[in-house]
């Protein structure tokens, strides 16, 4: 038996029918074509599928699509402001906080949620909070640095101590 749902995703309302067993991440990727939200493990271990539901960070592979009925979902596609990348996205680019990029949407969402709660986290707080997300490429150092840089200088995404060679490769 399918259920009709109305879910607001990145500010736009979507109506559709979902099977109860469809996961939120499936709905986003397959029904809406929002493939920015990635699927790594599908069992809640990797954080690649992280999105915000009513502003709360969740793993969209551990929530049913039907449970998002009547709620507001924000995915990585919804972080852009006025055509510009979000400061956390800029910080990831400027700080080379990704290699293959598979984990990046999840990390950006998790970092965004952390910074919303705690605008100036310490390195330890960043490491502890982001331990929910796995990255197989970077070794995490640049990710932590990137998040720190947003914390220290909101808006520009520039780490105060960042050298021009590292920071200014992107206009």
């Amino acid at each position: 038996m399918t259920h009709s749902v109305r879910i607001t995703v990145n500010g736009e309302a979507y109506e559709g029918d979902v099977e109860p067993r469809a996961l939120l991440v499936q709905f986003l990727r397959e029904q809406l074509g929002l493939t920015g939200t990635h699927v790594g493990c599908v069992v809640g271990e990797c954080g690649a599928c992280s999105v915000l539901v009513d502003g709360v960070l969740v793993k969209s592979c551990l929530m049913l699509a039907v449970q998002a009925n009547g709620r507001e979902v924000t995915t990585i596609e919804g972080l852009r402001r006025g055509g510009r990348p979000h400061p956390v996205q800029e910080a990831f680019v400027n700080g080379f906080a990704l290699q293959c990029g598979f984990c990046t949407p999840g990390f950006v969402m998790a970092a965004h949620a952390l910074l919303a709660r705690n605008p100036n986290p310490t390195e330890e707080e960043i490491r502890r909070d982001l331990s929910s997300n796995l990255c197989m490429c970077t070794g995490y150092v640049q990710i932590v640095e990137a998040v720190k840089s947003v914390g220290s200088d909101p808006g520009t995404g520039r780490h105060r101590g960042q050298t021009p060679e590292r920071g200014d490769s992107t206009p």
Partner: peptide, 8 residues
Amino acid sequence: ADVQVRNR
């Protein structure tokens, strides 16, 4: 657990 799991 972790942040996301604690939220749910």
